[in-house]
Design a protein around this nucleic acid. Sequence first.
DNA 1: GCAGACCTTTGACCCAGATCAAGTCTAGGC
DNA 2: GCCTAGACTTGATCTGGGTCAAAGGTCTGC
Lengths: 246, 246
Amino acid sequence: MNKPIELSIGCENCQIKHRAVCARCDEDEFATLEKIKYYRSFEAGQTVIWSGDRMEFVGSVVSGIASLTQTMEDGRTQMVGLLLPSDFVGRPGREAATYDVIATTDLVMCCFRRKPFEKMMLETPHVAQRLLEMTLDELDAAREWMLVLGRKTAREKIASLLSIIGRRDASLKLEGMAGKIVFDLPLTREAMADYLGLTLETVSRQMSALKRDGVIQLEGKRHVTVPSFERLLDEAGDDADGGLMA
Amino acid sequence: MNKPIELSIGCENCQIKHRAVCARCDEDEFATLEKIKYYRSFEAGQTVIWSGDRMEFVGSVVSGIASLTQTMEDGRTQMVGLLLPSDFVGRPGREAATYDVIATTDLVMCCFRRKPFEKMMLETPHVAQRLLEMTLDELDAAREWMLVLGRKTAREKIASLLSIIGRRDASLKLEGMAGKIVFDLPLTREAMADYLGLTLETVSRQMSALKRDGVIQLEGKRHVTVPSFERLLDEAGDDADGGLMA
DNA sequence: GCAGACCTTTGACCCAGATCAAGTCTAGGC
DNA sequence: GCCTAGACTTGATCTGGGTCAAAGGTCTGC
């Protein structure tokens, strides 16, 4: 595998670097990206782009969280992707957006105009290959989520979501010897429900249940402490007998 | 967009062509693919590759149907992808398979050894770009399916599956003026259930219900006639009041 | 400090789909 | 023609999560 190839889209002002690099062409691509880059900020709840709209840019999340959401005519919605900082947004080669992209929290994105980006991609094979890898990763994540949606119980779904968020949370830190993991949930109960194919009431109930059973700790509504992701997923599995049987 | 670029992996013996082509380099790539190609046949129910196994090839389905399936330790399974003829299998750049690949019906695959295929990809930018497009399509399909799994009722799920199968069925033909669509279901009720996140009993009941309500016709267990996909999806939506009220 | 807008929790009840349990249908095999 | 096995259907019952409704919390602006 060609390790020296690298692509991560961001910018040098943020903690996230944007580079489209191989041993030979480093500076060129960097400069190309510089020229076509701009920023956009959104408030929590704002729609970045509606499904079907022309997509004028690709880019990546600098800070905050965005969600990809599908909506049925009758209003049922399903979140189909969660974009955390450094995640890439957009489809080189696609004219129109396929989903609503919504700022779940306050959001800053680093954008690149789509046409020149595509041109750069055509001229720089490594970029297409890196994007292919990234897309394959997204595909794996989507399929992993299909298992969650199709076969897991509400309690297991919550545990899966906490793991995903927890694992990627920037502020993630180990606490004390016990190796507990502490982070803040950046989603409302409703957003969690939309991602998990549940209702917000069920999410709330299951969060309370996990807390009651001592699987997680909750301070306030959003500050979560979990023992370890393995134990979280395990204990969410064996369904809360609370030690009542013999 | 560069229209003359084309990639479809298959072989010239089958109806499916394998080509990795652009206006300039047509014959070369074709020859490269020829050299590294071989066939594999599987019986219905056989496992093509287990999750975690080394993936020695990429390729495409020539005939039959394969499924990508995820299994939990306790045996719950979720199908995360359905591979119909001409669909591409495998991950250039990935060592190990991420899911079980299972022959749902008798299956013939046209395979290319992975290493040389990857090499060819590195040397032929168009191939990487075409694979990116294909992967983006798969990603869209996976996300579409997340909506089905997360938010649709059993009846709607069945309708969605029938649409997908029907639309891609090779034997698809219009019948009479009415423009009805006729095809054979290549899946057992159990396989349908695995794809839809349901049990086989529920699948069976809903199939019977759709038939009883006149939304579809069934001859035998597998031969299906639907009016049109639009009406199928619509009528599956408004839930079978059968005209009893009023 | 109070009003209003959210977000969240909790309770009571209900129903779609799961589970458990018989059957039926069909295609081979002999 | 009969036997068996797998695919399928159907019924009875149970239950996880949805739905509806009513309260807490917490933050913002006044």
